Amino acid sequence: MTFDYLVSLISHYGVVYAIYTFLLPPVATFFLSYAVPKHIVTKYFRQPHFNDGDDELFNHFPFRYYLTLWIAQLTACNWFARRRQAYDLRKDSPRYWLVLSWIYFWLIVIPPITAFLLGLLGLGYFELTGRPVPQV
Rank of each mutant, 00 (worst) to 15 (best):
V109E: 05
K38M: 03
F45Y: 12
T75S: 13
P111G: 05
G124A: 05
G124L: 04
F3Y: 07
F105L: 06
A72K: 01
G130M: 10
H12V: 13
T29D: 01
F22C: 10
G130S: 10
L23G: 09
L117A: 14
P94S: 06
P62K: 05
W79Y: 11
T42D: 14
Y87F: 13
F63M: 10
F126R: 15
Q73G: 15
I103W: 00
G14L: 02
G53K: 12
A86E: 03
W70V: 11
L9C: 10
D92F: 02
F116M: 14
F126P: 04
I19Q: 04
D88G: 11
V99F: 11
G14Y: 01
L120H: 06
A81N: 09
Q47S: 13
I19S: 04
D55H: 09
L100H: 01
P112F: 06
L23V: 14
A35S: 11
A115V: 03
R95V: 14
L9K: 10
E56Y: 02
T129P: 07
P37N: 07
S93Q: 05
A115M: 03
S101K: 08
F30W: 12
S11A: 09
Y44A: 04
Y104D: 00
G14S: 09
Y5A: 13
D52N: 11
P94H: 05
F30K: 12
R46P: 07
T114A: 15
I71P: 01
Y13P: 00
Q135H: 12
R46M: 08
Q85I: 11
L23M: 12
I10Q: 07
K91C: 09
Q73W: 09
P112L: 07
Y104S: 02
